[in-house]
């Protein structure tokens, strides 16, 4: 695949909604998809009903609908973030072991996850800061990271302190090894390939500037 610059340099980085819309466009028709808690849930707002994408929620449901409001709210029907949701026609319920067997068994086409860091090899760190006073809590993050056929990460490319989140080696505790396929960020979209990190698209930044700021070698053009 060849690198394209969707916006001229100087135009600002993508907003979270722009990134979500971009991911939604890249999800093939009819895919089974799990959207992680946090930013990735925004992707649902950009999926057209005609796209035929089926959303999986780890707490035991396929064909999850949008958030519930008013009279629709049912305490028995929530998403993985414990937010009340709705069901779409063709929905199915199942227990937790089945839900994670579905995930671990490679039956989901795509999952979209947030991240603290992604390494050039596709290692993912998104569950624990490693801070000594942090209470560890993993939820379904490790199962999702290794289970879906393709793992997309959605994140800002740089942390608030300016340090890159796409790195040669993760410094945060890992969620999964070599599990990320693609990274969508405010400044660029990357594929993690066996040859290295390949730039698919940039938004308002040149590839050489991106490589400088990341301190990583970046491939452009077809990785094959």
């Amino acid at each position: 695949m060849s690198h394209t610059s969707s916006r001229a340099p100087g135009q600002g980085p993508l907003s979270k909604h722009d990134i979500a819309a971009l991911i939604a466009r890249d999800i093939p028709h009819g895919s089974y998809v799990n959207l992680g808690i946090g930013q990735p849930t925004l992707v649902a707002d950009h999926l057209s009903p005609t796209a035929g994408v089926v959303l999986h929620t780890e707490n035991g449901m396929l064909n999850m609908g949008p958030a519930a409001h008013g009279d629709e709210i049912d305490p028995d029907l929530t998403n993985a973030g414990k937010v009340p949701v709705t069901e779409l026609p063709g929905a199915a319920y199942f227990h937790h072991a089945d839900s994670f067997a579905m995930m671990r068994g490679g039956h989901l086409d795509i999952c979209v996850l947030g991240a603290f860091q992604v390494s050039a090899r596709g290692d993912l760190a998104n569950w624990h800061t490693g801070a000594p006073d942090a209470i560890p809590a993993v939820g379904g993050a490790m199962d999702l990271a290794i289970g879906a056929k393709q793992v997309f990460v959605m994140m800002d490319l740089f942390a608030r302190d300016g340090t890159p989140k796409l790195v040669s080696e993760c410094s945060y505790p890992l969620t999964g090894l070599a599990c990320v396929n693609r990274v969508y960020t405010d400044l660029a979209v990357f594929d993690i390939t066996e040859h290295g990190v390949s730039v698919r698209q940039t938004f308002g930044i040149e590839v050489h500037d991106l490589a400088d700021r990341l301190g990583l070698p970046l491939l452009t053009g077809s990785p094959r």
């Binding site: 227990h95 994670f100 993993v138 490790m142 199962d143 289970g147 890992l174 999964g176």
Partner: peptide
């Protein structure tokens, strides 16, 4: 990990002595 928790419970109920699971490796 949530799926491992569910599967360890399932294994207990199904009489499985232990199982190898890729989740969390490394």
């Amino acid at each position: 990990p949530q799926g491992t928790l569910a599967e360890r419970l399932r294994a207990a109920g199904a009489g499985i002595g232990a199982f190898f699971c890729p989740t969390g490796a490394g």
